[in-house]
């Protein structure tokens, strides 16, 4: 089996190929934004209907922990940027290490978020009719926690998917030289990871800081 050509036949050169794969990725990221858009719109609606409940429930969440989670995700984004930089210099070892660092930040984020979930399960701060938090007996509180679990849950699924992709990229970067294909893959995987970070940048103030 002959090795895959660096540039597919239908592209004039590597730059054109890069532009094409990038545009495809951005179109996909656009649909990801729209996937979350429904939840953000739902949040806007219920927060306008139950401002008091949303205020007290938000205050009930652990904002300090969420700030640390934010810093962890931003660190992951920085690691991915380094990986992209090193992949551009064709340095496979450093690329792989940076990607693994990003995977580690993803794991740390999920662990910290798991701590939050466990707390909420024990105190009964749960969605819909499972809401039993005696501390905040205000109508609308259960909707806050419905949205909280949907938004952070969907986001955490993206973190898991992104970390899986980055781990796969790290393996590929560690094996053999960085080819044009691997470089593009690192860039696209990185874009996905940054999007996951972007979503969290908005979830953090909306859920924890209002």
């Amino acid at each position: 089996m002959s090795p895959e050509p660096e540039v597919a036949e239908h592209f004039a050169n590597a730059q054109v190929q890069r532009n094409a794969v990038r545009l495809g990725m951005w179109a996909f990221l656009g649909t990801e934004i729209l996937l979350f858009a429904g939840l953000f719109a739902g949040y806007a609606e219920y927060r306008s209907l139950y401002p008091e409940a949303f205020f007290y429930c938000s205050r009930h969440l652990d904002a300090t922990l969420a700030m640390i989670e934010t810093a962890v995700l931003i660190t992951g984004s920085f690691a991915v940027v380094l990986a992209h930089h090193y992949a551009g210099e064709r340095r496979g070892g450093l690329t792989s290490l940076s990607l693994l660092a990003a995977v580690a930040t993803g794991g740390a984020f999920l662990a910290l978020h798991g701590v939050e979930y466990v707390t909420h399960f024990h105190e009964g701060a749960l969605p819909g009719r499972y809401y039993t938090l005696a501390e905040i007996p205000i109508a609308g509180s259960s909707m806050f926690f419905t949205l909280y679990f949907l938004m952070t849950g969907l986001h955490s699924l993206h973190v898991i998917a992104g970390a899986g992709v980055l781990a796969w990229l790290a393996l590929r970067a560690a094996r053999g030289p960085i080819t044009e294909h691997k470089y593009n893959a690192v860039e696209l995987g990185g874009l996905y990871w940054h999007l996951v970070d972007l979503i969290w940048i908005f979830l953090f103030p909306l859920l924890y800081l209002i």
Partner: peptide, 13 residues
């Protein structure tokens, strides 16, 4: 691509 996604997000909200 980004602007389109953001426009739809804004319309929706």
């Amino acid at each position: 691509a980004v602007a389109t996604a953001l426009l739809w997000l804004a319309l929706m909200i």
